[in-house]
Amino acid sequence: MSTSPSTPLLEPALLAQLERLELVSRKIFRGRMKGERRSKRKGQSVEFSDFRSYTPGDDLRFIDWNLYARLDKLFLKLFLEEEDLHFYVLLDASASMDFGDPTKLQYAKQLAAALGFIGLCRADRVRIEQIGPAQQTPGPVLRGRRSMWRMLDYLEQIEPGNNTPLVDGVKNFCLRNSGKGVVVLISDLMEKAGYESALRMLLAQQMDIYVIHLLSPEEIEPDIKGDLKLVDCEDADIAEITVSRPLLNRYKSTLAAFIEHAREFCTRRGMMYLMARTDVPVDRLVMNYLRQRGLVR
């Protein structure tokens, strides 16, 4: 079920493509440090925004002396301040993600690495975290292209089997990261308790939320036959089935309803939802689907 560890998370050819991309936020957020993107705040940058009358105490460096020469009045030039973007990737590393070829977890890591690399290239503040308990060590905060190796190392050491319920993991994340930004949740959403409360929690942070729903082809079109005892790898729950054509049809319709429900839930709440199959290459997912969805450009 697992992919060979020798497979690199990011192919060199993909890196070249990713360099040209940038992460897009549909909201303009306030960053903590100067970044490469415009902010609502006026500040120091090269991009002109407006003029205002001089009041005592203003920085003399920003007075437009040419204007003073023509009008004999002091005006201050205002510039748009450029800010950084807080970009989070929230990775589901539960045991259910360790299925498929490549495993869903491996696929999620590749996706996280690609998105993180885009952010690093644009000097965004990138943080990759796995859903886990409160006591878990949070992922490092990364900035700048040089941090790519740290990011990859962190991703490599993520192992499947962290079976924290989604809602708990998201709660921990929200407590640790109060700031605004873009968060990408990569999960299979297979939560018996339901994923809705977790998403609502993210929504309360007023973050720009992307949900990437990962499913392996084995889950979409199961190739099983006979009388089976299905064992859940996370909680060892058992479902006894006898595979028949109507049962398979019914499973498919259940799956379709499940996906449709997730899509509708996200869309209604302004979250961007994307169902991804693990047999679609990561580069195509990033370059095509995520571009269309507007996460990158």
Binding site: A95, S96, M97, F99, K104, D188, M190, E191, K192, S216, E219, I224, G226, D227, L228, K229, L230, V231, D232, C233, E234, D237, I238, A239, E240, I241, Y251, T254, L255, F258
Partner: peptide, 12 residues
Amino acid sequence: RQPLEVPSTYLW
């Protein structure tokens, strides 16, 4: 029945 481990019995 043959036991078979699956990611989740949720949908089943």
